[in-house]
């Protein structure tokens, strides 16, 4: 029993680690899509940022400079997306796809040109990464509160700063979207851009602001992958996380807090999938971890199809706004 309990806490711990990039990207997706811009380029922006973070952190020795550079590059990718689909009214899905494919190619090409290691960046040392932060009083809690002690030591303590930042980003997203004028306008621009336009606010400017915020958040997700959990960039290291985040965002019905729980659920599924390989369960036998990995996608399809409660995306999503003259 105690062993199961301990394993369970460890699973929750890795859930949080797996969910962190998903949370950043899901919040990015919420900002972008709430303003009416479909963003399937979460994946590509995260990948570019992961590469830049690792490369710059390696070059300068500072993860912080790496993070700033990564966020800047991710914003540039966002601006390309905006240039194509806000200014030139191009198809948002196609533009996002282009950025994803471009990211896959560029990261490897530049990686080889810089480091000649087949697309990898050199392994980062401890000082050029974001390391885990051990919280104080671990021994005190372990001694006096056995159950909470385990939770405190393994689940709450020992995360790097970006895990905390991801959770804080949910609160900030919620606050901006629902408690500020900017957020009200942002949501309106994704529902009825004409209304915002007739109120004398620039739809173009609002949408650009939204995708820049999305760029920042995707950038942080990439930073987390290559300089916090990982110790360097690996080709295609995002491995579809951007798409899972997209699924989580839809699963959370384009709202920050439900999206957070969707990210945690999908993170939990992945954490479980890596742990149950080869374990026989009573009555059901072995569960295939290959299939468990696909469960987030399946759940999202089922939800979108309205079989478990309906979802309504922002109304003006995917439509370029043409200002009336």
């Amino acid at each position: 029993m105690t062993d199961f309990w301990f394993q369970f806490v460890l699973t929750l711990d890795s859930t949080l680690r797996v969910a962190t990039p998903l949370i950043f990207c899901a919040m990015a997706g919420i900002f972008s899509e709430r303003s009416g811009i479909i963003d399937i380029s979460l994946e590509g922006k995260m990948l570019m940022a992961a590469f830049v973070a690792a490369a710059v952190a390696y070059g300068t020795g500072s993860p912080w400079i790496g993070a700033v550079a990564a966020v800047l590059v991710s914003i540039i990718a966002s601006l390309i997306h905006g240039f194509a689909c806000i200014i030139h009214r191009g198809n948002q899905v196609i533009s996002g796809l282009a950025i994803n494919i471009l990211a896959s190619g560029l990261t490897v090409i530049i990686g080889i040109a810089l480091f000649r290691q087949g697309g990898l960046t050199p392994t980062l040392t401890k000082t050029s990464r974001f390391n885990s932060i051990e919280l104080p009083f671990i021994e005190f809690f372990e001694l006096h509160t056995p159950i909470f002690g385990v939770i405190y030591k393994h689940l709450i303590s020992g995360h790097n700063i970006l895990v905390w930042a991801a959770i804080v980003s949910v609160a900030i997203t919620y606050y901006i979207l629902f408690k500020t004028t900017f957020g009200l306008r942002l949501r309106a621009v994704g529902e009825k851009p004409e209304a915002i336009d007739s109120a004398g606010i620039s739809v173009t400017k609002m949408r650009f602001q939204a995708i820049i915020i999305a760029g920042i958040l995707c950038g942080l997700a990439g930073v987390y992958l290559s300089t916090a959990t990982g110790a360097g960039f690996v080709k295609e290291m995002t491995a579809g996380k951007g798409y899972i985040a997209l699924a989580a965002m839809i699963f959370g019905k384009w709202r920050p807090v439900p999206a957070l729980f969707a990210c945690l659920l999908f993170g939990f599924l992945e954490a479980v999938a890596t742990r149950i390989q080869g374990i026989e369960f009573i009555l059901i036998g072995e569960i295939s971890s290959d299939l468990l990995i696909a469960l987030p996608y399946l759940l999202t399809v089922i939800l979108l199809a309205g079989f478990i409660g309906g979802v309504t995306p922002p109304r003006a999503i995917g439509q370029p706004y043409i200002k009336e003259r």
Partner: peptide, 15 residues
């Protein structure tokens, strides 16, 4: 090739 493909999708699709 991936990169060129991405650029082609960008310029002949989105743009």
């Amino acid at each position: 090739v991936l990169m060129i493909q991405g650029l082609i999708i960008l310029f002949s699709g989105a743009l």
